[in-house]
Design a binder for these strands. Structure first.
Lengths: 229, 229
DNA sequence: AGTAATTATGACAATAATATGACAATAATA
DNA sequence: TATTATTGTCATATTATTGTCATAATTACT
């Protein structure tokens, strides 16, 4: 049950960028480019969050925000406003009207995602809980648990992160360097070969009915998580 | 073997956005936020493409573009300029200096990727991470897999590279020397005849329903990958 | 057919890459 | 503070891959 996000933004390039980023993060995205189509999206299934451009044709953002907050069915939906840089007063007015947060254009994807998650966590934590399952191997980021055919699996935090990354990025080779960046985080000085060791630990941890085969070595390139053995 | 892209952009938010999108597409991304660090990135391993902001501190974009095109080692690297909207003259000047294309901010990820791929396809198709299929023979650089009619094929890294090169450069003879340059890399001292051996290994690996026939010997010249048997 | 040049092939040792087990250092937890 | 779990690194074992050779097979030419 991943979160459904309504993006209201008239400029196509920015809208596409927003949708791209949100999609990559696993959100369900609905787009609207004007007042009318935005209002049309306020029905079942309701979005869990609205990303709202301050200025857009067919009614300004604040107008739409007011409309949303007036309506009983939609007033609980959190709103994040998109404002142009430096327009401080807009932010203030936006928050007054009931926006839960705001983001300044241009925005970094990291910031965007962080703010969205923060708002969702406050408003509706369940829609962030996205359990991943691949052939009986279940990973639940919320409870921070991994199970295989109902059986709980034990592994260290690093193995968990590694598995989480793999399960959300299957069928793709990653070099040790990339894995270090993605799983350990940038600016971390760790030996390349250390990845090997954690790969082994992960394999050992998920060894069940051949599930360790999912973690595959690609000689000369790195590792891959693949269902196709 | 996926393309390495150097992003030169001072504004952190935009830079992060570019990197995010490019990373998702499987490119190797290197960042630079000023003239100095950009120049520092112009060494081994050279980027396959440079995304260059027109205006950035410590020297403008055109200055850096000129510098890149002046240097023998870097002048073959294609450049895509990032310009602010509406600055038509910038685009013209950029193209005059040797930029291969330009993108207007704000940009849609689709457009960005399309233009990058177009430029790379012209300059160096091997580093495009697109899946290639030729008569049931599939090579996917992203997952680093080769299959023939759905069946996985096994081969060593060198054979993989060789096949990748061939599949992106079909219907053309290459001398052993050329293959060594392109597949093994320059400055590698390897016997000419070694190519023969790898050709054999490649043929053996892709032997299916006569697919080994694609790898053809051109007596006295070298080898060719051709669909026409 | 005979010959020289060229390519194909199998075998092999050298090399490079990965797997693994052990260990001390560190961080987390009781 | 004591105890336990986790981490990163090393040394070593295990594989896979590489490049080269010797020899067989093929081709082109006389």
């Amino acid at each position: 049950m991943s979160a459904r996000i309504l993006v209201v933004e008239d400029e196509a390039a920015i809208r596409e960028m927003l949708c791209f980023v949100l999609n990559q993060q696993g959100f369900d995205v609905v787009q609207a480019q004007d007042y009318q189509s935005a209002v049309a999206c306020l029905t079942e299934p309701y979005p869990d969050l609205i990303l709202l451009d301050w200025m857009f044709p067919g009614g300004n953002g604040i107008g739409l925000a007011k409309e949303i907050k007036r309506n009983d069915y939609s007033k609980e939906i959190p709103i994040i406003m998109l404002t142009a840089r430096g327009e401080e007063e807009d932010k203030v007015r936006g928050l007054e009207v009931g926006a839960d947060d705001y983001i300044t254009k241009p925005f970094s994807p990291k910031e965007l995602i962080a703010r969205i998650k923060a708002v969702l966590r406050r408003a509706n934590p369940t829609c962030l809980a996205d359990e991943i399952e691949i052939q009986g191997l279940k990973l639940d980021p919320v409870s921070h648990r991994v199970s295989l055919g109902g059986e709980q699996l034990n592994m260290g935090p690093t193995e968990f992160k590694l598995l989480h990354f793999f399960m959300t990025h299957t069928e793709r080779v990653f070099s040790r360097e990339q894995l270090l960046d993605q799983v350990w985080g940038t600016n971390v000085y760790v030996e390349d070969r250390t990845v090997d060791v954690h790969i082994r630990r992960l394999r050992k941890a998920i060894t069940g009915l051949g599930h360790e085969k999912f973690v595959q070595t690609v000689r000369g390139s790195g590792y891959r998580f693949s269902i196709r053995v």
